Every structure is written in C-alpha cells, then in structure tokens.
Amino acid sequence: MQTIALDKLVEQTKEEVIAWRRHFHQHPELSFHEEKTAQYVYETLQSFGNLELSRPTKTSVMARLIGSQPGKVLAIRADMDALPIEEENTFEFASENPGVMHACGHDGHTAMLLGTAKILTSLKDEIKGEVRFLFQHAEELFPGGAEEMVQAGVMDGVDMVIGAHLWAPMKLGKVGVAYGPMMAAPDTFYITVEGKGGHAALPHDTIDSIAVAAQVVTNLQHIVSRNTDPLDNLVLSVTQFVAGTTHNVIPGSVEICGTVRSFDAELRKSVPALMERVVKGITEAHGAQYKFKYEFGYRPVINNDELTKAIEETVLEVFGEETLELMKPNMGGEDFSAYQQKAPGTYFYVGAGNKEKDIVYPHHHARFTIDENALEIGVNTFVHATFKLLD
C-alpha cells in the first residue's frame, strides 16, 4: 500500500478514534470487570464487517481479519481495563464511575486498535495473511488478562505480535522503540513483623514491632546497593508500612508490602532468599517473629530485534527521523510478555504528553490524561507496520 493512501485513511478515522477514546474514558471498568467495554468493542467491530469475532474470555474480544492472499499471522494487542482511582479531571468526558478511572491510557489503546481494525478491514483484498486484533482485559491486575487469553488460544498459529503504550512522559510527536529488554518483571512481597505490643511509656515490656520493621526497611536497601552487581538492573521499593492505632500504644505487628523489578532471570530468582535472610536476621536479633511472602509477577518484556527494526523503519518512513526515539529500558511491568512466550514480539511507545496543554501528570495519577493527537500517530504506526510485517 502507498503511504499517502494509508495516511489519508488514518486521517479520515481520527475523529471517530477520539470519540471512542472519550467513550471508554467516560465509562471505565476495573480489571476482570470489563463487561460493558468488551461488549461495546464487540459491537463496534461487528459493524466493520470482514471480521471473525470471538470472546476468548468473559471480558475480552478477539477479531480475525483473513486477507485475500496467503501469508503470515500478525497479532496486535490493546488493553482495556481502568484503575481504582477517583478522577480529578473536569473535562466533559471524565469518568462517570465513582472511584474508577482510565489513568494509564488504556482507553486510548482500545480506541487506536479499533481505528486500526476499521482501516484494515476496508483493505482486506490488499492483505497477505491474517491480522488478529486482541482486545485484552486486566493488564493492571496480576495474574493478568494476557495469560488467560494465551491459555484460551488467541496466539495459536500467530507468527508475530506487536503492541503499543501511550506514554505521557514522552512528548507528542515521538514514537519510542527499544531493542531487547523493554520493561521489567514486576514482583510483589509481603512481610509481617510480629513483636509484642504494650504501653508506649513502658517499651522495655514490649518487643517494638515498629522499631524492628524500620530496620527491616532500611536493610532491605542493602540488597540492591551491596548484594548485587551495580551493573544489574534491580529495584526494590517498600510501598506500604502499616502499623499502630494511637499515640500511646506500641503495636504488636507491622505489615510491609512492596515491589521488586528486574530483567535477569537468575537475579530475579535470587532476590527472595536475599530478602528473607535480611528479615530473619533482624527479627531474630530483637526477639521478634516474621512472615514472608513473595509473588513472582509478569515476565519482563524483551523485544525481538527483527520486529523492533521493522517498527523503527516504519516510523522513519511514515513520520521522519525527528519522530523516532531510541529508548532505554524502564522498570515498569507489562503482561504483554505473555504473548512473547508464544511468538516474537515488540512493544513500543507513542508520546502523549504536552506541557503547553498541561498534559504533564504521570500515569496512575488522578489528573492523568493524554494529548488525543497521539491517537492518530498510534493508528498510523499500526497500519503501516501491518503491511510492512505481512509483506
């Protein structure tokens, strides 16, 4: 397909894609509860024609576009779930569901893939092979929707898979690609420090769970700074510390929770034992007890070089050199990695931030939003990349 012809089709769908994004933003649904979102997506896809539709899980949708000529199978994925956040934006399409908000851009991802599907269905006779559109539920909540969809067979026969994330820290007009490691494996830990509660004026009659737990938090940081190679990528963050009820009572226990992020499989496996050694040593030294639980989350997103090169070439051909940004890995997590276990895949970023419009708030913030002009860039990249990869 000629670039000019595809660009025109993308431009013609721009307002519709924006309208879809606003609909999803106004009606967000939490992970594993995307019933109305999935139904809306299904009915919209149905209106396009030329698609074989199915519901791999209760709240997901798959659409298959079989081209007129034989060829490979390309899957394109978008996530659909929202977050448990009370929205503070005041625009007219702000969330109507109390305590639920699209604060990560998934509304835009879903709209972009609908736009891509609409354009490609109109070009069925030009397509070699198959395009499989995966509208996924529950990216935000482990064990995640991607693994469920893979188990349901959405990747059977797929030769390659691509996906994109609208990225507010990146300014509008940029598309970011990364070779190799792209996003980390996000694991979660839970620690309970059990001491002996009592009167705050009589600390000698207690085992101060807060004092012990504070040392646990401090010493866990030594795992990154002193127990692992400085050249390895590892993050260990304590994000919850819950204890106590009032000013004059030393509590009997403290609950600690946090996350570990890594890329290397061997390093990842070693972390739980290193953590528990720290927790065990400190609690025993002070006569306290502990409970330790470690949950392995999504696998790291590792991009395939060949597919990444194809996305890079697409960006250069469609938008020019000023649009392309070669990115470093980041320590965020994504269950897109589940698809990469079944076929080579690459995941890229579409810049959606704009300081001039005050679109500066980070993902998962109550005032997060995107510059909607990014949607057209995302659709354009998907559409052109489809023909490059299938040809």
Results as ranks from 00 to 15, higher is better:
His27Gly: 07
His27Asp: 07
His27Cys: 05
Glu29Val: 00
Glu29Phe: 00
His33Phe: 14
Glu35Ala: 14
Glu35Thr: 13
Lys36Val: 11
Thr37Ala: 01
Thr37Tyr: 03
Ala38Arg: 05
Ala38Tyr: 05
Gln39Glu: 15
Val41Trp: 02
Glu43Pro: 12
Glu43Ile: 05
Glu43Val: 11
Leu45Ile: 08
Leu45Pro: 05
Leu45Gly: 03
Gln46His: 14
Gln46Phe: 10
Phe48Trp: 10
Phe48Val: 04
Glu52Ser: 15
Glu52Thr: 15
Leu53Pro: 06
Ser54Lys: 07
Arg55Gly: 07
Pro56His: 12
Pro56Asn: 06
Pro56Thr: 05
Lys58Ser: 13
Thr59Met: 03
Met62Leu: 15
Met62Cys: 14
Ala63Val: 01
Ala63Ile: 08
Ala63Gly: 09
Arg64Val: 15
Leu65Arg: 03
Leu65Asn: 04
Ile66Trp: 10
Ser68Phe: 04
Pro70Val: 00
Pro70Trp: 00
Gly71Tyr: 04
Lys72His: 15
Val73Ile: 12
Ala75Asn: 00
Ala75Pro: 02
Ile76Lys: 09
Ile76Met: 14
Arg77Leu: 03
Ala78Gly: 04
Ala78Val: 07
Ala78Ser: 11
Met80Arg: 11
Met80Gln: 13
Met80Ala: 12
Asp81Ser: 03
Asp81Lys: 01
Asp81Pro: 05
Ala82Asn: 03
Leu83Pro: 10
Pro84Arg: 00
Ile85Ser: 07
Ile85Lys: 02
Glu86Tyr: 14
Glu86Ala: 14
Thr90Glu: 15
Thr90Met: 12
Glu92Cys: 14
Ala94Arg: 15
Ala94Asp: 13
Ala94Leu: 01
Ser95Tyr: 12
Glu96Leu: 14
Asn97Pro: 03
Asn97Ala: 15
Pro98Asn: 10
Pro98Tyr: 06
Gly99His: 07
Met101Gln: 12
His102Tyr: 02
His102Ser: 04
Ala103Gln: 12
Ala103Ile: 09
Cys104His: 08
Cys104Phe: 06
Gly105Met: 07
His106Phe: 01
His106Glu: 00
His106Tyr: 01
Asp107Cys: 09
Asp107Val: 02
Gly108Arg: 04
His109Arg: 06
Ala111Arg: 00
Leu113Phe: 07
Leu113Gly: 00
Leu114Met: 02
Thr116Trp: 05
Thr116Asn: 04
Ala117Met: 02
Ala117Gly: 09
Lys118Thr: 10
Lys118Asp: 05
Ile119Trp: 01
Leu120Val: 06
Ser122Tyr: 04
Ser122Cys: 12
Ser122Gln: 15
Ser122Ile: 09
Leu123Thr: 09
Lys124Ile: 10
Lys124Gly: 11
Asp125Lys: 11
Asp125Arg: 08
Glu126Phe: 09
Ile127Tyr: 12
Ile127Asn: 09
Glu130Pro: 07
Glu130Arg: 03
Val131Asp: 01
Leu134Ser: 10
Phe135His: 11
Gln136Val: 02
Gln136Leu: 06
Gln136Ala: 07
Ala138His: 02
Glu139Val: 08
Glu139Leu: 13
Glu140Asn: 06
Phe142Thr: 13
Pro143Leu: 13
Pro143Asp: 11
